Each structure stands twice: as C-alpha cells, then as structure tokens.
Amino acid sequence: MQGSFSSRQPCHARWRPVIPVCLALLSLPFLGGSDALAHAVAEGDKGYIQEISGIHFLPFIYLGAKHMVTGYDHILFLLGVIFFLYRMKDIGLYVSLFAIGHSTTMLLGVYFNVGINSYIIDAIIGLSVVYKALDNMGAYQRWFGFQPNTKAATLIFGFFHGFGLSTKIIEYEISSDGLVPNLLAFNVGVEIGQLLALSAILIVMGFWRKTESFWRHAYTANVAMMAAGFVLIGYQLTGLFVNS
C-alpha cells in the first residue's frame, strides 16, 4: 500500500541535511544545458524524426527507450511513486497506472494532433514531482486531514507526462507515412526504458532500505525531490513569460 513519511525525529533534525542535498540535486539540470530542463527530444533525434518516412520499428523503439531513461522528470516522478512501496504487486499496479496514462495521451495526442503549450505542460510535469514528494512527506494529511487518492493521482499525472512528449513530437512534424506503427514502436521503447529505469531505482532503493539511514534521510530525499520539481516549474513558467 502507498505510504508516506512519518518521522520520529524533531523538525530541526530532519531539516539539517536538506540544504546540501538540495543544492547538489538542483545543480544537475544546469549541467546539461537548457534541454535538460525541457521535456524534449535530443536535437540529433529531432533531425532524424523529421527526415525519415515509412515504418522504422527498431529506431523508434530505441528513441522511446532513450527518452525514458534520460528523461529525469519521468524518473523523479517514478522514484516518488515507488518510494514507500515494498511489495512488487503494489509497484506493478502504480507503474502500470502511470504507463497507461503516459501511453494513452502520447499516442492519441500525436494521432489526433492535440498539442499543449510545451512550457505549460512541462510546468505541470514539474508539479507532478512536487505533488508526489509532498504526498510522501505526509503533507496532505497534516494540512487537510485526508489522504488524496494516490492511484488516481498517478494515472492523471501519467496523462500529463504523455502530453508532454506528444506535444514535442507534434512540433517535430513526424511523417504521416508509417505514423501509427512508429508511434506504437516508440511507446514500446518508452515502456522498455521505464522498466530499465525502474529496475535501477528498485535495486538502489532495496539496498538503501536495509540501512539505518533510510528513515533518517527519507524526509530529506523527498524535500530535495520537491525542490527539483519547483525548479522545473519555475524554469518553464519563466520560459512561457519570456517567449509569450
């Protein structure tokens, strides 16, 4: 069952290690340039998508897997989703809900040419990271006295993550020749990449959960995750304002 952090430590003890962890995490996006903060496809891949036509299963599977593995907004959200999940049954359920949401809007968005302003959708994706981190910290129970439906939230934010990618693909004007098979292949690649990223996360989390430091630093990790989400939101809203 999805859980949240309930600390036995005093507040000041929880927050003491937060600042250096946040600074280290927040510096990562800027090391990769502006594209690192966007829900984008790499420039080389963009050119390839624009130039080809016809059915290309393996290249689009590769592109989908590459996008998921290198898309740290996806990975941050997945980390938040499985942070307090221990049973594989629960992990499979939540990851499946995210995959269903992500796949549905990515496929339908491109096929029906439904795009959303990329700055707005990427800001919402950043918001999904903030939402999940706050959920893990037990914020909603403390603030509002109830726990929002975590399954519904995972599915809904999955829809937004899918729209983030479909919006980019629409901007790149992918050829209509072989569109459906290529999109399906891309989605297969996305799911493969998601499984690879999830496997790495679960391995690391498995070792971490066996140590005494997990409960000491779980709150800190989610504060850092929340801060990264706010950076994503701020960056995208700034881009919206500057380019509007």
Rank of each mutant, 00 (worst) to 15 (best):
S4A: 09
S6N: 15
C11Q: 14
H12R: 15
R14T: 09
W15Q: 05
W15K: 09
R16N: 06
V21P: 00
L25N: 09
L25K: 08
F30N: 06
D35V: 11
A38Q: 15
G44M: 02
G54N: 03
L63I: 12
G64V: 03
K66S: 12
H67C: 05
F77H: 02
I82W: 00
Y86W: 15
M88T: 15
L93K: 15
L97S: 01
L97Q: 04
L107D: 00
G115H: 04
I116L: 12
G126S: 04
V129C: 02
A133H: 06
D135G: 12
A139F: 15
W143K: 13
F144C: 10
F146P: 10
G158N: 08
H161V: 02
G164D: 00
Y172H: 14
I174M: 13
L179G: 11
L179H: 10
N182F: 03
L184F: 12
F186R: 06
E191W: 08
E191F: 07
G193K: 01
L196Y: 11
F207L: 11
R209K: 13
K210S: 09
K210L: 10
E212S: 14
H217V: 03
T220W: 00
T220D: 04
A221N: 05
N222G: 03
A224Y: 00
M226K: 14
M226Y: 14
A228N: 14
F230S: 04
L232I: 13
I233K: 01
Y235R: 03
L237D: 00
L240F: 06
V242P: 11
N243G: 00
